[in-house]
Simulated scan of single mutants.
Amino acid sequence: MLFSPGQSFTYTANPGRVIFGHGTIAQLPDEIERLGLKRVLVLSTPFQRSEAEKLAQHIGEKAAGIFAGAVMHTPVNVTQDAVAVVNALGADGVVAIGGGSTTGLGKAIAVRTGLPQIVVPTTYAGSEMTPILGETSDGTKTTRSDPAILPEVVIYDVDLTLGLPPMLSGTSGINAIAHAAEALYAWDRNPVISLMALEGISALSGALPTINHNPSDRDARAAALYGAWLCGICLGAVGMALHHKLCHVIGGTFDLPHAETHTIILPHALAYNAPAIPEAWQQLQSVLGDDPALALHQLALKVGAPHGLGAIGMPEEGIDEATGRAFANPYWNPRPLEENPIRQLIARAWQGAPPAKD
């Protein structure tokens, strides 16, 4: 049992409507109508423009247009361009289809304009379940939380994830696991979120190897999307720690792909915190095995993830810069940050070496 009779906690449930299943995209027009929207702007990345066009056709006359300019880390200048399109077209809402980049753009538009947003995830990012927005300007990534950032409706359609390539499925899924892992030792953790965290980690860690072997396995895809939803709730409900701080610093500074960065850093950040989180470590053992940090490293290898930050574009000389930035405005963390161990953590992550507990 995750609840201790002597435990005190505060649990705040974020509002929002979730529709989950196969073929649920068919309900999008009804959801637009339910929100009273007349002209919605469809958002996507350039790569997913064809999906945005299909979505716009499905919506019909309520599609005001398409903005296919979403990119990772939600640059402020891209958001400004999108808001200009919103104003020019007279859009009264946005529909984001895709992963974290598109969801982030929808959130950034919503918090600036007050417009309602619907998200149709096609990855396992989990951002759609949070009131958190990370934005990049001049090479620096900052985050903020605001109820106005939270999407009004999320439509999970398992069928839309069937085309997600196996490696991207793996890194996206491990990125989601990171949200749940840190939720287990968050300063404001509670037993409700811990239940969701363990269920989400179990679902994803079981499904991702199957997806890597057979991407069209509908049961595994459903389990992964279910797990990602739960992990996203965790991210939106409690605070995060060292892992997310490092990913924001390193990803934003060196413009690295989001999911891959989280996948590579997670085992190392977890190993760093292991001495300070005995209860959470035991909980993770119940779903990942004796050494959860090593298990996540091995899971990344199984799904074909890149073998280190160096492999995704971070220069070796960036290790010292990332170490220094990790100590600027640090997140709360269960283990105090120590400069040499943090540098060693980043160096191992850069090399793609297995995690090591100091």
Rank of each mutant, 00 (worst) to 15 (best):
G318F: 13
D188S: 07
W350V: 01
L256W: 01
K38W: 04
L43T: 04
I346R: 04
I66A: 12
G104H: 03
A108I: 01
A269I: 01
P165Y: 07
P5D: 12
R39T: 00
L337F: 13
A271N: 10
I319Q: 09
I25M: 10
Y156R: 02
G139S: 10
H297S: 11
A222D: 03
L133H: 08
L168D: 13
P315R: 11
Y272W: 02
E338M: 03
A125S: 09
L198R: 07
A178M: 02
G324E: 13
F47W: 12
A237C: 09
A64K: 07
G60S: 11
T79D: 11
Y11R: 10
T210S: 02
R218Q: 11
D81A: 15
L345H: 08
H244C: 01
L266R: 06
I174C: 05
V119P: 01
Q7L: 11
A269Y: 03
V120R: 03
P5M: 08
E152A: 15
A276S: 13
R144V: 03
V83C: 13
Q298H: 14
F67A: 15
G289F: 12
P341H: 04
N14H: 06
G6H: 13
E152N: 15
A293K: 00
P292R: 06
G36N: 14
L55K: 06
F9G: 05
R189S: 05
T79N: 10
P151S: 12
F67C: 07
T113K: 04
R221A: 03
G227K: 09
L35V: 03
V86I: 10
A241I: 06
P354N: 03
N340V: 13
P165D: 01
V287Q: 00
S194E: 15
N190M: 05
G304H: 10
L89K: 09
